[in-house]
Design a protein around this nucleic acid. Structure first.
Lengths: 119, 119
DNA sequence: AAATGAACACCCTGTTCATTG
DNA sequence: CAATGAACAGGGTGTTCATTT
């Protein structure tokens, strides 16, 4: 409550939680999905941010890492890291999302206010 | 078009342009107004940001500075700086505001998208 | 080349300090 | 103490580099 608009990191974490709820993927796949999601808005998330967000969610005990080797395609055995909810991760994730939600609505309020007052 | 949500600085500059359109004031008065404006949203602008925004608008030739001494109240002769539009400042200001406007709408789109997709 | 991660640098913003009246 | 401003510090984000397969 002591800052301006919602931070990118928080938004990415919310998006990642939702994505993990739906399908287990690995880092760069999430990146690709999110790039598609935000392409219409001229926002292109970077791979380092995705990783940092995933690492934070891991450190917070919401998800955990599973190392795997990709099915032996033509491309060889690439090591990837799949993310899964911990025991109470789903619940913790919901709580986190709710926190960010109110911050998003606050941000929405700020932007609407600016648009209303200045245009 | 290569970033995330609209930056604080840009929003403050837009607000300041609008305020200068209405009434000539000095830095800390703008600060006080803007604190009031955004109080309901838990956002408290800082004095240094206001000054930086005013300095940028000055450097961009949108406004210029007039040094004055405040009417001799009980408090003595405080030196203040009033801001005024330059010759083409009003027009330039409008152009700047329009630029930020589209960025604000882009940001609005991002936040709405996140709220829609994740909740 | 794909995937992960760390290191580094840059930019934005907040806190603090300085000066003047 | 009010007003302005600069200097400095911290945090968030992007770019680059390193490692592995």
């Amino acid at each position: 409550m002591n800052h301006f608009l919602t931070k990118q990191r928080a938004i990415l974490k919310v998006c990642l939680i939702s994505l993990i709820e739906r399908k287990k993927m690995y880092g760069l796949q999430y990146l690709k999905e999110l790039k598609e999601t935000f392409k219409p808005y001229g926002y292109v998330p970077k791979h380092s941010e995705i990783y940092k967000a995933l690492h934070e969610l891991t450190a917070e005990g919401i998800i955990y890492r599973i190392k795997k080797r990709r099915c032996p395609d033509r491309e060889g055995f690439q090591e990837i890291i799949i993310y899964q909810f911990t025991e109470d991760g789903l619940e913790k994730g919901r709580v986190y999302k709710q926190m960010v939600r109110s911050d998003l609505e606050r941000s929405l309020g700020i932007i609407r206010k600016v648009l209303k007052d200045n245009y």
